[in-house]
Write a protein that binds this DNA or RNA. Sequence first.
DNA 1: ACTTAGCACTCTTTGATGTTGAGTGCTAAA
DNA 2: TTTAGCACTCAACATCAAAGAGTGCTAAGT
Lengths: 346, 346
Amino acid sequence: MVERLSKRGKNILQAVVSEYIATGEPVGSRTISKKHNLDLSAASIRNVMADIEEIGYLSQPHTSAGRIPTDMGLRYYVDCILTVRKLTKKEKQNIDRTYRPQNLQLIDIMKETSSLLSNFSQYTGIIIAPKFGNMIFEQIEFIKLRKNQILAVFIPKVGKVRNKIIETEEELSQDELHKFTKYLNEILSDLSLKDVRKKIINEMKKEKNMCDWLLSQALRLSQEAFSSDMDDDVFIDGKFNIFDCPEFCDMEKVKTLFRAFEEKNILVKLLDQVIQGEGIQIIIGTENQFQEMQECSIIASPYTWGENASGTLGVIGPTRMNYCDIVPMVDYTARTVSKIMDTKYQ
Amino acid sequence: MVERLSKRGKNILQAVVSEYIATGEPVGSRTISKKHNLDLSAASIRNVMADIEEIGYLSQPHTSAGRIPTDMGLRYYVDCILTVRKLTKKEKQNIDRTYRPQNLQLIDIMKETSSLLSNFSQYTGIIIAPKFGNMIFEQIEFIKLRKNQILAVFIPKVGKVRNKIIETEEELSQDELHKFTKYLNEILSDLSLKDVRKKIINEMKKEKNMCDWLLSQALRLSQEAFSSDMDDDVFIDGKFNIFDCPEFCDMEKVKTLFRAFEEKNILVKLLDQVIQGEGIQIIIGTENQFQEMQECSIIASPYTWGENASGTLGVIGPTRMNYCDIVPMVDYTARTVSKIMDTKYQ
DNA sequence: ACTTAGCACTCTTTGATGTTGAGTGCTAAA
DNA sequence: TTTAGCACTCAACATCAAAGAGTGCTAAGT
């Protein structure tokens, strides 16, 4: 983002944005000259505002109203003006405390985090669990159910145990299944799920030549077990906080936004973009490609676990969010979660 | 419900209710005398309406408005006036077809049902999965994870496989665990989960005397495995249809209702009352104890599986629902689901 | 060359006022 | 017992004026 504003322009944009974030109403020149001691008269401010509007950073709902920042304006504000505040000790402690309890399962961490994000921000907190494909293989077990049904139990190093029922053509004895698992647990240990899938395909190619029936069965089975495109686990909290935002007083808006919340894969896609980058990322209004969400901003950060970037967390709120407060909070939360994930699972 | 209305009174209440259900607006005497050929003038209808209002079955939003039925009025209508219509062949086929695909897992049946109920009614469809306690034991397996961690996998005859991680004090070998499961699978086979819990407690008492270390370990473990008060599985579909009801144009109302939807245990409690009774049950507005839901009616029916009453399904909508259409549809769906559950799992 | 006071102008918001229409309750006649 | 007729009530709607917030422009001040 190019620096397109003079010092004065910045100050005034800053004032408009912060006033707008506080009130949600269009901001007039008088208000600024009074509340923000820029030592300028309303008239001067008006002139500058007109300039800024021309660039496209401000807009007027109607002729005789004040200005509100456009998405572009907010983007400039976030990139070139905003200096986030530091969290107080107390706030940090509050976040730390969330993860203090012993014996938190992954699922608890997720729930606590989404609720933390939502409570702090007073908007909607969201966290996406580590990607299935990034999970590290620890163990697989096959349990014989009925004649041609086998339950595959996949146990990752971290994360939720997953079951899958597999139908087989031939009947397999539990003994055979034990052999399978022993073999698989050996060759797959410590691989990420992605690599597991690759490895299985490679092994199958090898096996084609060697023609060991048991092994090829084992591989076939494991392929099925890992084939599923498991849903991403999304934890959302505080959906209803948006009811309290004056900008969402319109039924239609709420309706579409909620449909987006329901469509979890919209959220996943949106936040998956964040996982590529590093550190806090902010998506403002129309910057995201989903119409349903274009009244919202997302402040998100990837959190890591070990070396794999593993998930994303963040806050969804109206574009007029308090970026100054929420950005450092999301950041600190992401760091804390990363730390916890590391220590919990060596 | 006592018969408190004359034939004429009934006809007029019937007219008011059906008109109100159709339009959602207060109904005036003129409208009735015109549209429903009762061969009475508006003036006569007015007189009767005043009588009905006195009993408490109708009310006026304000002096110069028409009448709307009260919850009591709707209750009388449902009990003493309503004759439900029969489903057409096509509608029945539509419902049947939902369950035709082979290889539907329980979870699919649930999803399809909630969506079916919602689509047909244009309101919110809901189904509660068979109670955990009513599930029939088929198999349990213990898998050793790490030193003192064991994964218990519980496989019911019907329903979702469930995992639970158990921490133990002593380390147990996989061999020992095999012995445990063999023993447990024998003594628990075909019991309902409730009975399983009882049986385990009984066996533990016996064991205290016999002092077989392995057995008592096995029992302790299984007790832990079955201790969890698993969440009820609630499947809801079409939450957002209520946005389209004119009576929910008020933000506050939507807000509270949605909070109730979120609090799944409100829904569970509400529908659990239905499981006691037999056949279709209708809960109108303030008849339910939850304030959040007192603008809604619930049309629900238990569905069975084998001999155990096992779950509930139904439709949640505004009190001015089309009872005449939705009641038979919920009924038929409940019967169909029961049938499917029976045939799928002998 | 900036800055700013002053002013005319625009446009929303608010409240007051009147009108319309749906619906009621009562009365008296059929 | 029914119903036509009539006076009355009240929400909903439209119209209008006044207030207020804010702008843009101009001309004078620094």
